[in-house]
Computed example of a mutant assay.
Amino acid sequence: MTAKLPSPTVLTGRHVRLEPLTTAHAADLFEAAGGDEEVFRWLPGPVPGTPAEMVGTVETRTGDPDCVPFAVIVPETGRAIGMTCYFDASAEDEHLEIGGTWYARSAWRTAVNTESKLLLLTHAFEELGMGRVCWKTDHLNERSQNAIRRLGAQYEGTLRRARRRRDGSWRDSVYFSMLADEWPAAKDRLTDRLLAG
């Protein structure tokens, strides 16, 4: 059976709701992290330092045909505090990438990332039928690498001089993946982590 390509949908958890990203989220996103160099340090493109630039950041994601972007919403407030995306999905090869993720600093070291990834991975493996989910990140971004490892993803390798950074320097891209047969154990660990607090 061939996998299905992702499409805009709502994924609901206890700590976060992921909903299709639109420019209507830009004001919340700017309030959450606009101009924060550390939040956007490892992401391509300019740091959105004005509300209009945040609209541009959202439009870049929503206008990319290889991207299915989500706004990360706090259910209690209904406010967007970050974004995350599916990229480069292939139904034939049964794989997709999770990336373009950022959260306001207030969400760091909370349940937000764990539950966001749990929702995205559950949807990818159990509803879309993907066989492989991958991540890639800057080799200097140790916080991201550690977060990906905590999901249960496996290190695959490093592509040298893979992408130019905003400052013109070159980054090596560190690749991780999770396969469908690794997902049940990873799901149990992520679920237990959420229940533990």
Score class of each variant (00 low, 15 high):
residue 85 C to F: 05
residue 123 H to D: 09
residue 142 E to V: 09
residue 178 M to V: 03
residue 23 T to Q: 13
residue 31 E to L: 07
residue 18 L to Y: 09
residue 5 L to E: 08
residue 67 C to R: 11
residue 34 G to P: 00
residue 76 E to D: 14
residue 173 S to H: 07
residue 1 M to L: 15
residue 112 V to R: 04
residue 171 R to D: 02
residue 50 T to D: 02
residue 158 T to F: 13
residue 17 R to C: 13
residue 128 L to Y: 01
residue 92 E to V: 00
residue 49 G to W: 10
residue 161 R to V: 08
residue 73 I to V: 15
residue 14 R to P: 07
residue 5 L to Y: 00
residue 145 Q to Y: 00
residue 50 T to M: 07
residue 109 R to T: 10
residue 24 A to D: 14
residue 58 V to T: 08
residue 81 I to K: 03
residue 164 R to T: 05
residue 174 V to Q: 06
residue 50 T to P: 04
residue 110 T to D: 02
residue 158 T to Y: 14
residue 76 E to K: 14
residue 48 P to T: 14
residue 168 G to C: 04
residue 142 E to L: 11
residue 112 V to A: 12
residue 26 A to H: 11
residue 121 L to I: 11
residue 114 T to E: 05
residue 182 E to N: 09
residue 143 R to L: 09
residue 103 Y to Q: 12
residue 34 G to E: 08
residue 70 F to K: 04
residue 66 D to I: 14
residue 169 S to C: 12
residue 75 P to L: 12
residue 64 D to A: 15
residue 125 F to L: 09
residue 180 A to N: 02
residue 75 P to N: 12
residue 154 Q to K: 15
residue 33 A to C: 11
residue 186 A to W: 00
residue 148 I to C: 07
residue 97 E to T: 02
residue 124 A to R: 07
residue 30 F to A: 07
residue 109 R to F: 02
residue 48 P to E: 14
residue 182 E to A: 10
residue 32 A to W: 06
residue 116 S to A: 15
residue 162 A to K: 12
residue 2 T to C: 09
residue 94 E to A: 02
residue 186 A to S: 07
residue 78 G to W: 01
residue 168 G to F: 05
residue 113 N to H: 04
residue 100 G to E: 01
residue 12 T to F: 00
residue 132 R to P: 00
residue 14 R to N: 13
residue 150 R to F: 10
residue 164 R to D: 02
